Computed example of a mutant assay.
Amino acid sequence: MTLSYDISGDGPTVVLLHSSVCDRRMWDPQLAPLHKAGYRVVRCDFRGFGETPVAYGPFSDAEDVCALLDHLRLDRFALIGSSHGGEVAIEVAALRPAAVTSLALLCAAMPGHMPGSALSAYTRRKKTLLAAGDIPGAVELSLTTWLGPLADDGVRSQVRDMQRHAYEVQRAAEYTSTAAGVDLAWITAPCLVVSGAHDMADFREIAGRLPGQVERARHLELPWAGHFPSLERPDEVSEVLIGFLNETRPARS
């Protein structure tokens, strides 16, 4: 199965992987800055998100992404992932170390992470609402949980639309993604780990641990950010990401 995707721009390739609240549209604010900086951008929707159908058998998001990269014949690329997309980016970077030129993780989840009390409580409440058919309630729970204080009404509306669509589509799903099974020591690419001071503790803790587990990783905490800094202050985050990309694989002039 090939994931729904789009490609735009010219230059070295950057692959953008979305969170499990959003779909590939979450990266809309980063497209123009990345193009202007000289990068080609690939965005995809995981199964059950955006324009990609749900799965009716076992699957792995990371393996799906690798299959897409093979389909596009991409042998060198940077990875940028948000939340669950960050977890997938970690798995892909470990599975394809020779291909990944750099890895940027925004409030990323991590393979094998055991959720803390707040994340567990959120997951229980979400499952209860969805089991009762209360999609609007589950959507508003996501917004309350994940959007930081700088998220304006436009961002809230955009995230609300993406999350509602995902929940509606996923009602037909029989399977969820399974971890690819990787060792973080396999990752060789330079890695920028970004966290938000207003994010849930799980993701701040993951960001703090990753530099000790990934050899070439460094951590940057944004004091103003919630879970989606690329939506909350898109220009500032685009500048951070492009600066990091230019350190590792500068775009052609």
Score class of each variant (00 low, 15 high):
residue 1 M to W: 05
residue 2 T to F: 05
residue 2 T to V: 12
residue 5 Y to C: 09
residue 6 D to A: 08
residue 8 S to C: 10
residue 9 G to F: 06
residue 10 D to N: 11
residue 10 D to F: 07
residue 13 T to C: 05
residue 14 V to W: 04
residue 19 S to I: 12
residue 23 D to S: 04
residue 27 W to P: 02
residue 30 Q to S: 05
residue 31 L to G: 15
residue 32 A to N: 08
residue 33 P to M: 07
residue 34 L to K: 04
residue 35 H to D: 03
residue 35 H to E: 04
residue 36 K to M: 06
residue 40 R to M: 01
residue 40 R to A: 10
residue 41 V to W: 00
residue 43 R to Q: 09
residue 46 F to M: 09
residue 46 F to P: 00
residue 46 F to A: 04
residue 48 G to I: 03
residue 50 G to D: 04
residue 52 T to S: 06
residue 52 T to Q: 02
residue 56 Y to A: 15
residue 57 G to R: 13
residue 57 G to C: 12
residue 60 S to C: 02
residue 65 V to S: 00
residue 76 R to N: 10
residue 77 F to T: 03
residue 81 G to I: 07
residue 82 S to L: 12
residue 85 G to V: 01
residue 86 G to N: 08
residue 87 E to W: 06
residue 87 E to Y: 09
residue 95 L to G: 13
residue 95 L to S: 14
residue 98 A to R: 03
residue 98 A to F: 04
residue 101 T to N: 05
residue 101 T to G: 07
residue 102 S to A: 11
residue 109 A to Q: 07
residue 112 G to C: 13
residue 112 G to K: 12
residue 113 H to G: 04
residue 118 A to W: 07
residue 125 R to L: 03
residue 128 T to H: 12
residue 128 T to G: 12
residue 131 A to H: 14
residue 132 A to I: 03
residue 134 D to T: 14
residue 136 P to H: 10
residue 138 A to M: 08
residue 142 S to Q: 06
residue 145 T to S: 14
residue 145 T to F: 11
residue 147 L to M: 07
residue 151 A to V: 12
residue 153 D to F: 09
residue 154 G to F: 05
residue 155 V to M: 02
residue 157 S to Q: 13
residue 157 S to C: 13
residue 159 V to Q: 03
residue 160 R to G: 06
residue 164 R to K: 04
residue 165 H to F: 10
residue 168 E to V: 10
residue 178 T to V: 12
residue 179 A to F: 10
residue 179 A to M: 09
residue 180 A to E: 06
residue 183 D to T: 12
residue 184 L to H: 01
residue 193 V to I: 06
residue 194 V to A: 02
residue 194 V to S: 01
residue 197 A to H: 14
residue 203 F to L: 08
residue 207 A to Y: 09
residue 207 A to W: 07
residue 209 R to H: 08
residue 210 L to D: 06
residue 210 L to Q: 11
residue 212 G to M: 12
residue 213 Q to H: 10
residue 213 Q to I: 01
residue 215 E to T: 09
residue 217 A to N: 02
residue 218 R to I: 06
residue 219 H to V: 08
residue 229 P to D: 03
residue 231 L to M: 10
residue 231 L to I: 10
residue 233 R to G: 09
residue 235 D to C: 15
residue 235 D to Q: 15
residue 238 S to T: 13
residue 242 I to A: 12
residue 245 L to P: 01
residue 245 L to G: 01
residue 248 T to L: 03
residue 252 R to Q: 15
residue 253 S to V: 15
residue 253 S to R: 15
